[in-house]
């Protein structure tokens, strides 16, 4: 496992290095010391963007691995708990208020997004704390549906066409035009969230045997649930707060890396964090390089464009091989 982590970390470092140089303006690392503008591009534009990709990707990847382990379902996604849509609702609310003339300031979007994520976490805790995974998922889906409806309402009542386009663009998810402020929001939250998952890693292993057996092994369901919701809230809430909705990372990354591990959930959390970071760094670099009329390809759209066909191919191969009964982890 440490070998996989080491390999992923090395590739991530390499990709991050190339990503720093890549863009509409390619940076020549040898020219750095001579040209102040190049250094400015690097430090003020490229570096925060790469760090954001790392923070958002690692948080989403780790959250996906933890959610799949908790729900014992390889198709689970961090969006399931309704935390991402609720954070998005908060962010949309901030943009809406800003357009309506309320001074929300530069911290408005991330702060309201985190309040949205916190609200979803509190609701989940209230409704489902004593229930099992199914009640939990249902409650999360209802919260997601409610947040989605409220977000649509905000869009339909948007104070100006400009606000409308800003909200829609933001919802698509992107890392363009972000600053160090966003890095300081996302990076600590992502790290704290991943730390929550590491704390419950062994509990998630025990969950492989089902809740009853896990409890008989000493797992405390409420501690597990609380740390899991906290971890998803911090990592996903933080990522939505700075980048909008970015799908597929939490679903696909654990899925791809699982066969490279011993398939214990605890062995998958760190690789998924590193793999998610790698995927976002690469995808965001490609977005930057892709010439598109009127700007660049949105990261959220790019991931779906790449991710969906890729996932369909995997499903096709799975279909060809036939479903393995019982052990869902051996799917692909």
């Amino acid at each position: 496992m440490t070998r996989l982590n080491g390999l992923l970390a090395m590739v991530l470092l390499l990709a991050a290095g190339v990503s720093l140089l890549a863009g509409p303006v390619w940076v020549n690392p040898l020219a750095l010391s001579q040209d102040g503008r190049v250094a400015a591009i690097l430090i003020e534009l490229r570096l925060p963007r790469v760090l954001l990709a790392v923070a958002v990707g690692s948080g989403l990847g780790a959250a996906g691995a933890a959610m799949q382990a908790y729900l014992r379902n390889p198709l689970a996604d961090p969006g399931l708990f309704g935390i991402a849509p609720s954070a998005a609702l908060g962010a949309v609310g901030a943009i809406w208020l800003g357009a309506a003339g309320v001074p929300v300031g530069p911290w408005g979007v991330p702060v309201l997004a985190l309040i949205g994520a916190g609200g979803a976490m509190a609701l989940l805790g209230l409704i489902a704390a004593r229930g099992g995974a199914i009640l939990f998922t249902l409650a999360g889906m209802m919260i997601a549906s409610l947040s989605g409806a409220l977000t649509s309402l905000a869009i339909s009542l948007s104070p100006s066409p400009f606000a409308l386009s800003e909200i829609v663009a933001w919802l698509m998810g992107a890392l363009a035009d972000r600053s160090w402020t966003d890095v300081w929001v996302a990076l600590p939250l992502s790290l704290l969230g991943t730390a929550c998952f590491v704390l419950v890693a062994r509990d998630l292993d025990a969950m492989s045997l089902g809740m009853a057996a896990a409890r008989s092994l000493g797992v405390e369901p409420r501690r597990l649930q609380a740390l899991l919701v906290l971890g998803v809230g911090l990592s996903v809430g933080g990522s939505v707060a700075v980048a909008g909705i970015i799908g597929f990372v939490g679903l696909v990354v654990p899925h791809l890396l699982r066969p490279l591990t011993d398939r214990r959930p605890s062995s998958l959390i760190l690789p998924s964090a590193l793999g998610g970071a790698l995927l976002l760094v690469v995808a965001d670099s490609l977005c930057r390089l892709w010439p598109l009329a009127g700007g660049e390809l949105r990261l959220g759209i790019a991931l779906s464009l790449l991710g969906a066909p890729f996932f369909l191919t995997l499903l096709w191969r799975m279909r060809a091989r036939g479903l393995q009964a019982g052990a869902t982890g051996g799917w692909i």
Binding site: L209, R263, A327, T328, G329, G330
Partner: peptide
């Protein structure tokens, strides 16, 4: 049930 969610060794 004897369930094992992932294909562990």
């Amino acid at each position: 049930a004897g369930e094992v969610a992932w294909d562990l060794s």
